[in-house]
């Protein structure tokens, strides 16, 4: 099965608002999600100035933007994707 692609924005705003913790997500996810995704850090996604989005940190899971991303939020999205 193809692994899910998780892209984490490491721009200034995202990093300060929590992306620094998200970079360690592989160690933090519950066992059922381990090995099911690949993490990639990006210099900046350029989303922090988009008024239509609710706030940093931003990540993309298989290209879908997750705003105000937390490890729990990302795990929920991953589970939903796996269920689909």
């Amino acid at each position: 099965m193809k692994k899910m692609q998780l892209e984490i924005c490491c721009g200034t705003t995202c990093y300060m608002m929590g992306a620094n913790r998200l970079l360690y997500i592989e160690n933090e996810v519950p066992p059922e999600l381990r090995g099911k995704f690949e993490v990639k850090a990006l210099p900046c996604m350029g989303l922090c100035n988009d008024k239509n989005l609710s706030g940093a940190p931003y990540v993309k899971l298989n290209g879908i933007i997750i705003e105000n991303a937390t490890i729990e939020k990302i795990c929920d999205k991953m589970r939903a994707m796996l269920d689909d």
Partner: peptide, 12 residues
């Protein structure tokens, strides 16, 4: 100037 950096809620 990156407007997002002017957000007063940033911790630094």
């Amino acid at each position: 100037v990156n407007e997002a950096h002017q957000d007063p809620s940033l911790p630094q």
